[in-house]
């Protein structure tokens, strides 16, 4: 269930938009932040808020890289695999993460903490290789630094 405060704030966001659709991405992101991922229920809520059908919300939701339509862990790790990070051996970082979390890209660690995903250029090319954990960017990664980050993010979550 969506908390009343969130509903009110999203209704205000939609009302302030030039057209309701303009607020669609904001609404989806806020609902995702609340539910952890954009659940079917959240798609329904978004549709009602925006005056669209569920399918019309789905058309938008499935287009964007950072809207998740499947369950994810508490935190989502995105590892950039575009050219600058590739030059800086992002493949090694990905390999390390797969090993540490025991998952393939797309998978969620057994404890439900981390979902591992690749992503397109994060604009962190000067600090490559880079990844983000729930939106927090981390650059100049090494396997050791990745371990530290995992420990820190895990501690922050509990």
């Amino acid at each position: 269930m969506m908390p009343e405060a969130l509903r009110t704030s999203l209704q205000a966001r939609v009302a302030a938009a030039v057209t309701p659709r303009e607020a669609a991405v904001d609404v989806m992101k806020e609902l995702q932040a609340h539910y952890g991922w954009l659940t079917d229920e959240a798609v329904g809520e978004a549709a009602r808020l925006l005056g669209l059908s569920e399918l019309q919300v789905e058309e938008l939701a499935t287009f964007y890289e950072m809207i998740y339509r499947r369950p994810v862990g508490k935190k989502v790790i995105h590892v950039c695999d575009s050219i600058s990070c590739w030059c800086a051996c992002c493949e090694e970082i990905m390999r390390h993460l797969k090993e540490r979390l025991g998952v393939e890209p797309g998978g969620t660690s057994a404890d439900g903490m981390f979902t591992l995903l690749p992503c397109c250029c994060m604009g962190m090319c000067g600090d490559s290789p880079a990844m983000s954990v729930n939106g927090t960017p981390y650059g100049k990664l090494t396997p050791e630094l990745v371990d530290e980050i995992l420990a820190r993010e895990r501690a922050l979550a509990s």
Binding site: T19, E22, V25, E65
Partner: peptide, 21 residues
Amino acid sequence: HLSAGRYICGEETALINALEG
């Protein structure tokens, strides 16, 4: 207007569609 990640949104007419929702 904060987007949700897609390279094509940088193309100006795609960006206009994105902004319109």
